[in-house]
């Protein structure tokens, strides 16, 4: 399996450990991820609230770059990039004045022909959970996690086409395949206030605090995420949440790829746990998932 890989800005900065662990998982499973040469930012939220054409043109530019590679499908780990790339594809599949404008902007025709997948989709549906289960070396027994999907992974369904909008199961099922326990909790698709991390930090603290509280109440020891923005809001801002709401959360926010990699027997050192603000290693050690000294 070979994919054109679109990391996105976050995975090259705040979420390097996501990038690294995804690559480790891919390596272990024989999935080839070839990074799109000279990819550019997908525009994220600020593009689509400022200029519609721009918000389509930027992702399409990346898809055109991918088209020039051998791979026929693009894979990304970032839920926001995934959403933007998918939205652009859906938009370009229609035919009208606006689509012609995009082609004029880019100087190339494009009709949404490059398929886009999230890495979670590749693992669960293309590689297959069954296959994955046979490859698990180290079962994550005793680990209780809350799987948190956030907004953009599954909304809207006719854009991403991945899982249920209100009650997704993909990460939960994946965690059970790995031997961990996925707790039942109602905040799976609640919003963490992603794009307001800088502008309205107070709001982010409230929303993230609620999510942490709910996960804690339902008995989760860690939250598993598939989006770099969710991770950074819940992880980097956790100390501030604690301060503002006088809480003592010590909830590691772990990428699903990191747990998959651990289960596949990848060395802990390669997975960037030291980059987390709330260190997941004590918890993993307590559960005897990792042994070596931190």
């Amino acid at each position: 399996m070979k994919y054109a890989y679109f990391p996105g800005c976050s995975l090259h900065s705040t979420a390097r450990e996501y990038d690294r662990s995804a690559k480790e998982v891919a390596l272990a499973l024989g999935i080839e991820l070839a990074e799109i040469p000279d990819w550019i930012c997908c525009g994220a939220t600020p593009a689509h609230i400022t200029m519609q054409l721009l918000s389509i043109a930027l992702p399409v530019k990346n898809l055109l770059l991918a088209k020039k590679m051998e791979a026929c499908e693009v894979v990304t780990c970032c839920a926001a990039c995934f959403n933007r790339l998918k939205t652009a594809n859906k938009f370009m599949k229609q035919r009208g004045e606006e689509q012609l404008k995009i082609e004029k902007i880019l100087g190339e025709p494009y009709r949404g022909e490059v398929e886009v997948r999230h890495f979670l989709d590749v693992l669960v549906n293309v590689f297959g959970s069954k296959n994955l289960e046979t490859r698990v070396i180290k079962r994550l027994k005793g680990l209780k996690v809350a799987s948190y999907y956030g907004c953009l992974l599954n909304r809207l369904k006719d854009v991403t086409g991945l899982d249920d909008e209100e009650e997704p199961r993909m990460i939960d099922d994946l965690m059970e395949v790995l031997g961990a326990e996925a707790v039942k909790w109602p905040y799976k698709t609640e919003c963490c206030g992603a794009s307001f991390s800088l502008t309205k930090t107070d709001v982010v603290l409230k929303l993230s605090g609620d999510i942490l509280q709910m996960a804690y109440d339902e008995g989760a020891q860690a939250i598993v995420v598939a989006c770099p923005m969710c991770q950074s809001n819940l992880d980097i801002r956790q100390a501030m949440v604690n301060k503002k709401y006088k809480k003592n959360f010590n909830m590691p926010i772990i990428y699903f790829t990191q747990l998959v990699a651990l289960a596949l027997g990848v060395e802990m050192k390669k997975l960037g746990f030291e980059k987390h603000m709330v260190d997941p290693r004590p918890l993993l050690k307590e559960k005897e998932i990792i042994f070596s000294k931190a």
Partner: peptide, 24 residues
């Protein structure tokens, strides 16, 4: 109110325009 949000969007886009990828 909350005028920093429209401002932030524009700064973000300028950033992308200049650097191609987000320069935090």
């Amino acid at each position: 109110g909350d005028t920093e949000i429209p401002l932030f969007n524009k700064i973000f886009l300028r950033n992308i325009e200049l650097f191609g990828r987000l320069y935090e």
